[in-house]
Design a protein around this nucleic acid. Structure first.
Length: 358
DNA sequence: TTTTCATCTCAGACCACATCGATGA
DNA sequence: TATCATCGATGTGGTCTGAGATGAA
């Protein structure tokens, strides 16, 4: 977190909350087309049942001016459309980063911060590795550093030291001024919902449908305002699949829906989000992207051991040039004696606290 | 200033097999 | 309903490899 002070560049302040005008916005409410800080988000969206159903997304980690549209798995970062294009068109490697549309949440952002701080940090770490938890990834990563910033908690103070690397993601402290007084909200699994709108861009250039179940990029383009299909899968079947397409073509933003204040979709593209992103062009954007890249460069992900028993086995296995090799019969007998003679004693590594086997 | 080459750094692939988790009998 | 067997998927670590980054000529 030592880098944090250095990130704050003059003139690159996060978008202020539309309500209080004082705190930096942390989330974007689609129904209200409003940028809100965590405090105002809690006040507004916990006020009544209808408001609580407004879908919100976190702000882009780079420009902090537009709602995040996609999450890059490789970078573990939520990015708006424009930043996604900037960053992932830089080189062929970046183009291959797998990105998925962000999923909005219905809980108040503050409650997510609270609940995940208690139980979700470890999961967030493992989710970096386990693509099954993609849906968890975005909000957790987004809020985690915000949470840390807001509460002035150092990573080392947390329960999970291995999470430290996660907090290298720094933010401009959007909840700095937020109060903790909010109602607890029962977590609700949000319906699969479209990412924020993409406007002011030729649809056919930027809005491709992609089906990761196929090898080739789908050639069927979709006009974003009409499609509500989410063809990007985050199931475990997609683990390790890196699309070969180019940055923008890899991701579809098929969910351009405008939801009015009554929660009714109008079918008309909502403009504010991306329009704001586009306003941030030129030097500002370049500076933000550079800052983001620097952060990413310094970020480190630590491996999380989920099964100590497997680790123990892996460490004892014979190898040839680092690769696992078949055991000979003698070795198998020896290992059988070791593991069978002292049940439970081999895995004494309480460091991981998992899987008491044998 | 630009190009070329050498060196360094790092992410990802690879391997075998115990274990997990789902499914059906 | 509970138990057991089966089977495919998963996770584990050390080394190698190739691509990108960096620096010198």
């Amino acid at each position: 977190m030592g880098l944090q002070a250095g990130w704050t560049l003059p003139g690159l302040t996060p978008k202020p909350c539309d309500t209080c005008k004082s705190s930096p916005s942390a989330v974007f409410c689609r129904a209200d087309s409003a940028y809100l800080c965590l405090t105002c988000d809690s006040k507004i969206h916990c006020a009544n049942k209808l408001a609580s159903r407004h879908q919100r997304v976190w702000m882009c980690e780079v420009c902090e001016q537009a709602p995040a549209a996609v999450t890059c798995k490789a970078d573990a970062a939520a990015l708006c459309v424009t930043c996604d294009a900037d960053i992932h068109s830089a080189n062929p490697l970046a183009r291959r980063h797998e990105r998925v549309p962000v999923e909005p949440f219905l809980d108040s952002a503050e409650s997510i911060v609270k609940s995940t701080s208690a139980v979700g940090l470890s999961d967030a770490a493992s989710s970096l590795k386990n693509d099954d938890a993609d849906s968890l990834l975005i909000p957790n990563l987004n809020f985690s550093s915000k949470f840390i910033d807001a509460l002035d908690i150092k990573p080392g103070d947390m329960f999970f030291p291995e999470m430290e690397s996660l907090f290298e993601l720094d933010y401009p402290n959007p909840i700095q001024n937020s109060s903790s007084g909010m109602d607890s909200v029962v977590p609700v699994q949000p319906d699969p919902i479209p990412p924020p709108p993409v406007v002011n861009q030729p649809p056919r250039e930027n809005c491709f449908d992609i089906d990761f179940c196929r090898n080739k990029l789908s050639s069927s383009f979709s006009y974003p305002a009409q499609s509500i299909s989410q063809s990007v899968s985050s199931s475990s079947l997609d683990v390790g699949v890196v699309p070969d397409g180019n940055s923008l073509s890899d991701i579809s933003y098929p969910f351009i829906r405008n939801v009015n204040h009554n929660g009714v979709e109008s079918g008309v593209a909502a403009a504010p989000a991306t329009a704001t992103a586009i306003q941030l062009s030129g030097v500002d954007r370049e500076a933000r992207v550079m800052r983001y890249r620097e952060k990413r460069k310094n970020r480190k992900f630590q491996k999380t051991i989920r099964y100590a028993s497997r680790k123990a086995y892996a460490e004892t296995r014979p190898r040839i040039k680092g690769r696992f090799a078949k055991r000979t019969e003698t070795e198998t007998e020896v290992m059988d004696r070791i593991f069978n003679s002292a049940p439970g004693s081999y895995i004494a590594d309480a460091q991981y606290g998992v899987v008491p086997t044998f």
